[in-house]
Design a binder for these strands. Sequence first.
DNA 1: AGCAGATACTAGAACGTTCTAGAAGAGAAG
DNA 2: CTTCTCTTCTAGAACGTTCTAGTATCTGCT
Lengths: 333, 333
Amino acid sequence: MAPSTPPARRPTLADVARESGVSVALASIVMRGTEGASEASRTKVKAAALELGYRPDSRARSLRSHHNRTVGVALRLGEPVHAELADALYAEAEARGYEIILGAIGGNRDERRVLNTLIDAGAEAIIGISPTLPAAQMAQVASQVPVVSLLRGYRQLPSVLTDEAAGIDELVAHLLHLGHRRLLHLDGGHAVAAAQRRTAFERAVARANGNVVGTVLGAGADESTTFDVLDAYLRETAADQRATAVLAFNDRAALGARRAIDLAGLRVPDQIALTGFDDSEFARLAHADLTSVRQDVAALASAAMAAATSPGAASSRHAPHLVVRGSSATSKH
Amino acid sequence: MAPSTPPARRPTLADVARESGVSVALASIVMRGTEGASEASRTKVKAAALELGYRPDSRARSLRSHHNRTVGVALRLGEPVHAELADALYAEAEARGYEIILGAIGGNRDERRVLNTLIDAGAEAIIGISPTLPAAQMAQVASQVPVVSLLRGYRQLPSVLTDEAAGIDELVAHLLHLGHRRLLHLDGGHAVAAAQRRTAFERAVARANGNVVGTVLGAGADESTTFDVLDAYLRETAADQRATAVLAFNDRAALGARRAIDLAGLRVPDQIALTGFDDSEFARLAHADLTSVRQDVAALASAAMAAATSPGAASSRHAPHLVVRGSSATSKH
DNA sequence: AGCAGATACTAGAACGTTCTAGAAGAGAAG
DNA sequence: CTTCTCTTCTAGAACGTTCTAGTATCTGCT
């Protein structure tokens, strides 16, 4: 009978070795780029690998060596900032010769399980973006592979954070510079960075020594509660007592705030200025044109990746920067 | 010397076997739930596994058997619809006893590589949400593992699609029912479903036998080009010739459209109705309150998962349904 | 020529699982 | 009491890689 085409089996290291006339062990050395092979064999083996379309099998690799250059990233799918961070992490991984696999936390999924799935799939380190697991459980996961927490601080874990206070400080300085003296902060409630942003706001106001009136209202991280809170405030407060600038917890909350402002018939930024936080998609939407604080996504990603891939990792904190847009621009006169 | 605590090694099947006094092979049978073990051994082994906190090693499992109950999902991180689908896929996977790992396409990443990474990490099947790879490359990937295309049709691949035409039909019928006779469709340009939605719109208008005037303007899937196109249209068109209802390509485009409408001083929905597509987060934002078409996320996810996990999979098409909100509500008089 | 010390290479075990093939034990039928 | 079948179990190879320990093969030096 005629020799039939074998059913597209994935080429293995043994195939490469045979093709280039060396041992499997030597082929392995070449593919890993380890020392111990002559230049001649290197070119020979690499050529064979290329010709066969060989891709090392990550599963076998990690099974044997616990090192397959793959890191797992757990993120929340809805969040624009997480998406940006993931993009930056991909770029960073690319530069370091790593691969990335993702797991989605949030929903009503078991976050622990998502992390385990990533580990089982061979991730040799985990980066969690705004994880919500209690410290003890995080530690348990970290006993299996290195874990880095991004955007949320854990005492026991290397944590890569944004300097929330610095962001709020910039924001407040900007508003003071524009001449605002009555500021309103809409607090993010239980959201991860809410407490830090609120205290930073309060301190910034305190530093102004009575020149500035700062109010904090408990709202929430989402659009609708923020709307409700600000709507009530604008109704109840006399025009001459009203804040002239509103600092929403984040961009999304700012969208709710914007609606309340529009409804009250106030013009932004002339009668009232509005700022967000995160500089997410929402801020850039043309009709929002929102002044916001941009996290240093590249630096965060780089630090997180570094912490994940090198053993003795330290925590770090990265300064964000102000992005001024129309919602707080100087009124033109 | 005192017996030191062993350094938290992950328990293996051999450990479970030893603990319960059976062979590794039998322990394997029990863990897989395969037949061939007595009830007595089953309970014995399961107890031991539980006690040791044993989790089967997915890498080893897939290396040996090419079956580790893990599917890889490739998605675009920015897209709200993708996030919803991912959530539904997770739920579906949970129900079927599968795990999910994610890969992010888009950015300027090589989509092929993302799929390969998922395969390397051990995914035994791949679901691509709105993939953009040319058919030939898709086929190449599909020669390694089963691949299902979600939201985009490939002739060679099992594809799970939304019935775009049905959605547009519902939308048009709704608007006609409200009394609108001049409709404007803002086309999505090169976006995946754009062509289907446009021709569906044209056919729906044609079916109305001259009772309805339908206009199509080439815009794009994003907010800003949609704004530009509609803004120009509203300026150039006399009020009595103007469309009374605008069908934006999707929710996001509708946001741009909304801004153009606001700018023109027209009130929604009294003077002009506006609809989106996808029923994403954008549509539900309170200030948008956008009538939209909701894809049947659960059905799509279920079909995709079924196609990914069972061999002879067929393509399917799922009807979406209309979600009426304020942007097209009957004017109250 | 003989030897030390590199350098280049390789056989074979190992990682944790599944799979194949067969052994041991228990009844049932002759 | 043998033989057969069925069930339950197990040894050992296999998956594709890396790692350990070692064997050849080259250098240059006395």
